[in-house]
Simulated scan of single mutants.
Amino acid sequence: MISTTSFFTPVENDLHLLTDNLKRLVGARHPILGAAAEHLFDAGGKRIRPAIVLLVSRATMLDLEITSRHRRLAEITEMIHTASLVHDDVVDEAALRRNVPTVNSLFDNRIAVLAGDFLFAQSSWYLANLDNLQVVKLLSEVIRDFAEGEIFQGINRFDTSLTLEAYLDKSYYKTASLMANSSKSAAILSDASAEVIDSLYNYGKYLGLAFQIVDDILDFTSPTEVLGKPSGSDLISGNITAPALFAMEETPYLETLIQREFSEEGDIDKALSIISESQGIERSQELAAYHGQLALKQLACLKPSPYSQSLTDIVDYVLSRLY
């Protein structure tokens, strides 16, 4: 498996700067938020989203130094992502993320909701200060997409009529929108051509979809200590993802188990074994690989450089998490 450090190498210094800056930007205002921020930005996150922004920035500014606006965009991207995780954990009532206690379990739900709101608000303020209306529109859309994805997931719990298309739409809202629109924004700040800007939006979109599908597979295949949460926890909470969708096509009895919300003893174990014995995992792997290939094709618009190579490596890394 490819390690994250190898493709971060070209932007390693940028990422160190980013982490220090984030703690300063968020922590200065209030001790509790400072403690939450310190905890969030130290929680062992992979920094993939800001790394993509920085790599796209450098890949589209080859002969020039990236600007302070590129750097700020990477910070805003990580802030938005972190805010969404804080809210996600409250909605999911999660006690751990990446094996680290969540903000809601350390403080309480009220503080966690407010910390998430604060991060969204703080990111919006820095966004407005970029003075680029196009970028403001793109990243405001991301914040709206997050909420839409969460609401969609919340009202469609245990709904076995969910289609693959609706699942991919939700995956776009929850994961791919941020990668797509922040990549596009980085290219806009570099004054790239319209063609390059569109390609990099699509790169982020397809990469984000592959990333979410892989995450949904790992929810079934990874042991708890790797995931930092119980195996199959998405399904148990009624969130139906690609492996379950494919397994239901093969074994309609899975629908019955989901529709009755695993209310009878042994339902969850039955459901998990139906999925593991079906083609669900395999077909989901193919779906992830398909989106990964689409992401790679989009990079043809970039001149060869260590940065474009790293953007290629990220796709391989995302898919290699499965093996």
Rank of each mutant, 00 (worst) to 15 (best):
L245E: 07
H291K: 13
E261Y: 00
G238I: 02
L218Y: 15
E225W: 06
D269C: 06
T241P: 03
A288K: 08
G232P: 05
E282K: 14
L272N: 12
L287S: 02
P243Y: 10
F246I: 10
L235R: 06
K229S: 11
A289S: 07
A288Y: 06
I240P: 01
V226K: 15
M248R: 02
P243E: 09
K270T: 14
I213Y: 02
Y290V: 03
A289F: 01
I217F: 10
D215C: 01
T224Y: 15
L254H: 07
E282M: 12
V226C: 11
E264T: 05
G228P: 14
E264V: 06
E225M: 00
P252G: 01
V226N: 13
L227D: 04
L254K: 06
L218D: 05
M248L: 01
G232C: 10
G280R: 07
D234I: 02
D219I: 02
E282H: 08
A288H: 13
Q212Y: 03
I281E: 02
A247L: 12
H291S: 08
D216C: 09
G228D: 08
L218C: 10
L257H: 08
E277D: 03
S263W: 00
N239Y: 06
E225R: 14
L257C: 04
S263T: 02
Q285N: 05
A244W: 04
S273F: 00
E277I: 00
K229G: 12
K229Q: 13
M248V: 01
I275W: 02
V226P: 03
D215M: 07
D216G: 09
L287I: 09
D216R: 05
A247E: 02
L218R: 15
D216T: 09
P230E: 15
A288S: 13
L257F: 12
I217A: 12
A244N: 02
T251F: 06
M248I: 01
E261G: 01
D216W: 03
R260Q: 07
P223Q: 13
L272W: 11
I274L: 14
V214Q: 07
E249V: 14
P252D: 00
S276V: 00
T241G: 03
G238S: 06
P223N: 14
Y290F: 15
Q259S: 11
H291L: 15
I274P: 03
N239K: 10
P223A: 09
S276W: 00
D219K: 05
F220Q: 05
M248G: 01
L272F: 14
G228E: 12
A289G: 00
R283V: 00
P252Q: 02
E250Y: 05
I217Q: 09
E264D: 14
S278L: 00
Q285K: 09
A247C: 10
D267V: 02
P230T: 14
Q279N: 09
G266A: 09
T221Q: 09
L254S: 08
S222Q: 12
T256Q: 06
E250M: 14
A288W: 10
T251A: 09
S231N: 13
